[in-house]
Design a protein around this nucleic acid. Structure first.
Length: 272
RNA sequence: CACUGACCAUGUAUG
């Protein structure tokens, strides 16, 4: 059963809920892990209705499956359902609280988020990050900063969130000072500072950061691309675009917007 | 063996 469970998990993560379902369906002696894995396979792959069916059919429920269903509701913006589930479950961990909080903040229920945050039995870095991004989404940089300064310490994720918040609010220098005071960096935080410079039109610095990065992903490339495309350097942007190894919807939209902003309507049409 | 937070374009509700 362990091994079959691993396979269900793999298919679920790969996005193939149908194959996961086949294995699950034929599996004799399903345990609570099998059920939870099937539940998250559906939850991850945009099948909320099927996830609910699996949940309803489960022989028993535990914390993990409640949390998984909360995650699914949150991702599908079913905030009311998340709240109902949260109120009805037998036990809650900090993660369950964080999930409801994130359901609120990601869907801009800021008042509810604030009330819940103040009612929580404890907070961890996730709780703070979630509340912080709630403020950011509602453009309240002041509250975001106040919350950040209340924290006992800062991990990589919450620092990156605050860095991006400053950048979004137009405070490049505050973003920089967070970055340089951090104890550790990863690809995401490098991308965040790169995009901060890019957003503020500091093309030279953005380029240097990009060139100096040890690893890059498509987000890094798109950030550099937008530095050029949206600040009037269409030719440079085109060069970057052509050296990219892969493109996604964001790359194309960036390039298209760049052409439009610079009056290159023919090129824009071609891209489109 | 299962569950939560941060990074990229455009748009995102007094139009």
């Amino acid at each position: 059963v362990f091994l079959w469970n691993l396979l269900i998990d793999a298919y679920g993560r790969f996005g193939d809920a149908v194959s996961a379902r086949k294995i699950f369906g034929n599996l004799a002696g399903k345990n609570i892990y099998s059920w939870s894995l099937m539940l998250s396979a559906y939850a991850r792959n945009e099948h909320l209705d099927l996830a609910e069916e699996v949940y309803a059919a489960m022989p028993e429920w535990n914390l993990v499956c409640w949390n998984t269903l909360l995650t699914a509701y949150k991702q599908h913006s079913r905030v009311e359902s998340a709240k109902l589930l949260f109120d009805s479950i037998q036990e809650r961990t900090l993660m369950s609280w964080n999930l409801l909080l994130t359901a609120y903040t990601q869907n801009r229920y800021l008042k509810e988020a604030k009330l819940l945050f103040d009612k929580m039995p404890e907070w961890d870095q996730v709780s703070f990050t979630s509340m912080l991004t709630g403020y950011v989404r509602t453009s309240d940089i002041g509250q975001a900063k106040a919350l950040y300064e209340r924290m006992p310490y800062w991990d990589l994720v919450v620092s990156t969130a605050m860095l991006s918040a400053y950048s979004l609010a137009g405070h490049l220098e505050d973003a920089e000072s967070i970055f340089y005071r951090m104890q550790e960096w990863n690809l995401v935080s490098w991308n965040a500072i790169l995009s901060a410079y890019s957003r503020h039109g500091r093309l030279d610095v953005a380029r240097k950061i990009f060139d100096g990065m040890r690893e890059r992903n498509i987000i890094s490339w798109n950030a550099l691309l937008s530095a050029y495309a949206l600040k009037g350097h269409v030719k440079q942007a085109k060069l970057v675009f052509e050296s990219m190894l892969e493109w996604n919807l964001i790359s194309w939209t960036t390039m298209l917007t760049g052409y439009c902003l610079n009056g290159c309507l023919e090129e824009a049409k071609l891209v489109f």
